[in-house]
């Protein structure tokens, strides 16, 4: 598995997400708290087909963390990419590694 470095973790404000361009692909990175923990998902909202998920709100339901799309509020699991509203839909999730504050993602 090859990890691509993206940015320093301080560039992601706790509780928010950012979008990274990795090998030509748009990947949304989320940092739920000020811990060194980051999740990576596709940036494209599969319902609207628009690249917006990194701008969603991070939320907790059923004791798991999700991202709520800023368009129509469908929620996607930060770890698995599964959609809470429609089980037939899911988006890709990617492994993330943080070394010395540098966030790296493997596609």
């Amino acid at each position: 598995m090859s990890f691509v470095s993206v940015c320093h973790i301080d560039k992601i404000f706790p509780g928010t997400g950012v979008c990274a361009l990795i090998k030509g692909k748009q990947v949304a990175l989320f940092r739920p708290s000020d811990n060194a923990e980051v999740f990576a998902l596709d940036n494209m909202d599969p319902f609207a087909k628009s690249n917006v998920l990194s701008r969603g709100l991070i939320c907790e339901h059923n004791k798991q963390l999700w991202i709520a799309s800023p368009l129509k509020k469908q929620r996607f699991n930060l770890e698995t990419g599964d959609c809470l509203e429609d089980q037939s839909v899911s988006i890709k999730s990617y492994p993330v590694k943080i070394t010395d504050g540098t966030v790296a993602v493997s596609l």
Binding site: T16, L57, I58, C59, E60, L65, R75
Partner: peptide
């Protein structure tokens, strides 16, 4: 717990209505 897409903006709005701070003050961005 952590909060969600319902309570976070709701409380963000209450904080703004109560104290009139800039909505983009760092502590409110999320």
């Amino acid at each position: 717990g952590y909060g969600c897409e319902v309570c976070k903006p709701a409380i963000g709005s209450i904080l703004a209505s109560c104290w009139g701070e800039h909505v983009l003050a760092p502590q409110h961005v999320s």
